[in-house]
């Protein structure tokens, strides 16, 4: 009996070891980025489309180019605190390589080889193309270095064990496109919505483990902070014209001239800086959803 128990625990441990190995943090191959040249001007567009400032600027700051972190995100798994991603080499990401930056965005893996939590929406950024990652990196290096230490998240067990995230990623991290795109404009709209704009992170409901439900893509979701709902953006839920949607993304004004509130106010603050063509491409992507 005793021996059986010993064997059982040995097998269990082996099983865990194999699972951990299979779900170990993935990184990009550095040679993939070696020949690419970053363009900071183009990177700025990626930066606004990606909405990095919404999460990484200081709490209630109006400066979208200062990224010391510190904002707190309350979720059912505990509180996440956005880290410093300024160009400071000690406290920020100033001393990273472009490949390390790419591994963070595309695979959710840190330079130390640890899994990031999906509170950092790499589940969407995983669809970014390599040139955009490289351009964004060039732009981020032009931002001010802020010597502010990142703070630890305040999470409950077992969510505070990063290794468990490997299983989560295995189940839910997927860089395939969700919807087909028939024209170049729809393709651009899809890229802005599904990759950079990470719209689905809020507008799509999640399952019990926090994975997005592709079957209810952009159909609206309960608000993660409890009260209220995040509206659906599929045509059956939102009957605005494409021009109305584009104007809302530019100014925050609805067709009734109320103005956006909630987290969407921050999305408009960044996405509103894109070109009119890009905002219209987003609107047309939304109108083509079912």
């Amino acid at each position: 009996m005793k021996r059986a128990m010993t064997w059982l625990s040995v097998f269990t441990m082996l099983g865990i070891a194999v699972a951990l190995w299979l779900t170990r943090p993935a990184v990009v191959n550095p040679t993939r980025f070696a020949s690419l040249h970053g363009n900071a001007t183009r990177g700025e567009v990626v930066f606004w489309a990606g909405g990095c400032a919404s999460c990484h600027k200081a709490e209630s700051s109006d400066d979208d180019l200062a990224l010391p972190g510190g904002r707190r995100f309350v979720t059912q798994f505990g509180n996440f605190i956005a880290p410093n991603i300024s160009s400071d080499p000690t406290h920020g990401i100033g001393d990273w390589t472009v490949a390390e930056f790419a591994s963070a965005l595309l695979h959710g893996t840190s330079p130390e080889g640890r899994h990031y939590y999906p509170a950092f929406p790499y589940t969407s950024y995983a669809r970014m193309n390599d040139q955009d990652v490289t351009d964004l990196w060039a732009f981020m290096q032009t931002l001010p270095a802020l010597p502010v230490a990142s703070r630890r998240h305040d999470l409950t067990f077992p969510f505070n064990v990063r290794a468990t995230l490997g299983v989560w990623k295995f189940l839910f991290l997927n860089s395939d496109w969700v919807r087909p795109a028939e024209t170049p404009e729809l393709e651009r709209g899809r890229y802005l919505v599904e990759a950079l704009g990470h719209c689905a992170e809020c507008h799509t409901p999640r399952n019990l483990l926090g994975g997005s439900l592709a079957s209810a893509w952009m159909k609206g979701a309960p608000h993660p902070a409890g009260k209220g709902r995040i509206p659906g953006l599929v045509p059956s839920a939102l009957d605005w014209s494409a021009e109305d949607i584009a104007y809302y993304l530019e100014t925050g004004f609805t067709p009734d001239f109320d103005s956006a509130g909630g987290e969407m106010a921050e999305v408009v603050a960044t996405i509103g800086r894109l070109s009119p063509e890009d905002r219209l491409a987003i609107a047309h992507y939304l109108k083509a959803l079912e």
Partner: peptide, 10 residues
């Protein structure tokens, strides 16, 4: 203007 309205509603 929209930014100011939204900042308050946010």
């Amino acid at each position: 203007v929209g930014g100011a309205c939204s900042a308050c509603h946010r």
